[in-house]
């Protein structure tokens, strides 16, 4: 049960990144050769507003220790206002997670623009650190929040 050993714990994190801002920000982090922990598996969505409750809950059910959603800054959404929809949805989802015994911090929403490679790096590094501290998610079977 090496997974329970806090120091050796390698969390699994799913990142939903909007194609216009955060995915491009992650590309910029790559082009700039910034380094960050390898725990996140990025998935491209057209808009952060596409990330529905089912996708987030599926990620936790299937063993994610954390879920990161990256969207365009308020006012910058490529699709007019999708990120505002996400912002509201994330508030509700955090409540729902708490109800089922998952710490709401395991779901994190961040605005990262296409020019913010540094912010992408920092966000992933800090979020991975936070999830490491929290330990495995209770929904993945062997953790408790």
């Amino acid at each position: 049960m090496a997974k329970l050993n806090d120091n050796g714990f390698e969390p699994k994190i799913v990142a939903f990144l909007c194609r216009w801002c955060s995915y491009a920000g992650a590309d910029l982090a790559g082009v700039s050769r910034m380094t960050y922990p390898a725990n996140i598996i990025p998935m491209r969505v057209n808009c952060s507003g596409r990330v529905d409750a089912g996708m987030v809950m599926a990620a936790f059910e299937k063993g994610a220790d954390g879920v990161l959603i990256g969207g365009c800054h308020p006012g910058d959404c490529h699709y007019v206002n999708g990120n505002y929809k996400t912002r509201r949805r994330v508030i509700l989802l955090k409540r729902a997670l708490a109800e089922v015994g998952v710490k709401p911090q395991r779901l994190h929403l961040e605005w990262i623009s296409a020019s913010e490679g540094v912010k992408f790096q920092r966000t992933v590094t800090e979020f991975t650190g936070l999830i490491k501290e929290l330990g495995p998610s209770p929904m993945s079977g062997d953790g408790e929040d």
Partner: peptide, 8 residues
Amino acid sequence: GCGSCVSA
């Protein structure tokens, strides 16, 4: 293709 409707 933003998918706002899909999520809702």
